[in-house]
Design a protein around this nucleic acid. Sequence first.
DNA 1: TATTGTTATACTCTATAACTATA
DNA 2: TATAGTTATAGAGTATAACAATA
Lengths: 174, 174
Amino acid sequence: MKDECPPDVLSRRLGYLLKHAYVAMAAEMDAALAPFRLCPRELGVMAVIAAACEQPSQLEIAARLGVDRTTMVGVIDSLESKGYVERHRSDRDRRRNVVTLTAAGQLCLGEAEVARERVERDFLAPLDETSATALTEALVTLHRARADTDLSDSGRVVAGHRAATAGAPYGGCA
Amino acid sequence: MKDECPPDVLSRRLGYLLKHAYVAMAAEMDAALAPFRLCPRELGVMAVIAAACEQPSQLEIAARLGVDRTTMVGVIDSLESKGYVERHRSDRDRRRNVVTLTAAGQLCLGEAEVARERVERDFLAPLDETSATALTEALVTLHRARADTDLSDSGRVVAGHRAATAGAPYGGCA
DNA sequence: TATTGTTATACTCTATAACTATA
DNA sequence: TATAGTTATAGAGTATAACAATA
């Protein structure tokens, strides 16, 4: 087991750090949500539904999460098969599928959100409170800055997102 | 275009923020490295080779980057086809493929690293210097904490990494 | 018997295009 | 003609298992 000469070629690179932070968080979130038969994306869908004033359609949910509408079909299928959501044809516009939480879905959402918050707390546990807050605030600032520039560039919030994620978790190689 | 009622159901969630920060960074890195015919992972491989005291084998490079040795074969194939690296059988142990940078590879690495640093600077541009430093330091702290616990848990640095990334960039749904 | 590199295979996730129905 | 949902297909990326050469 040989040690590296410069103690860290990679662990000072922002891309490397972000990637590994994200992967570690995703793994812990997957594990924490497994008892609820949910993945992080499904929890996100349910949270979006619960937070919306008017009941959102599949397309609106997809847009807010930055996923394709064809992908959303499967996510809703999965949630519906578990009894957490229901599809209803909109009366106003019969093309739209309005998605609502069932009672079981609302109950599950509440418990799963507690689990999610615990994962986030545990994840930040190695940091003191000042650093943890600074990290979160910095990420929020970066997220807002990116949302602004994306909007001014193309009018589409998720522009650039799709291309970057095409089957390539870490950035596809040639 | 309807606005959400609570201004941000998702953008206060740590998982969401980390995911989007990583995806945005990966997209910009991909674009910045494209002129060099490199992807971020390939740049990482070259950086690891350049930083190692003794010339590393494919397996050692793979271990340091946390990727499978079967995946490393293709990465080295790609770099070799571009003339950036060469494979040599180790004299000491003829099973090992020692990977070295070519002159073209060293030149390319130097220029690509400049591009990478520019991407990282641009990415942090929306933050003041204090926040940018705090973000980086927090990520380093979290990374080290995770490396420590992984080591004490199983003796394997990349434990948990593999399972989390199996074909599921954002955490696979059932 | 264990390790390194390699290949082949299967699986997951995503995007693209095409189809249906509604507007 | 355009939009919402759906389906089928193809593509990228990874892990798994099996194999050859070497230790």
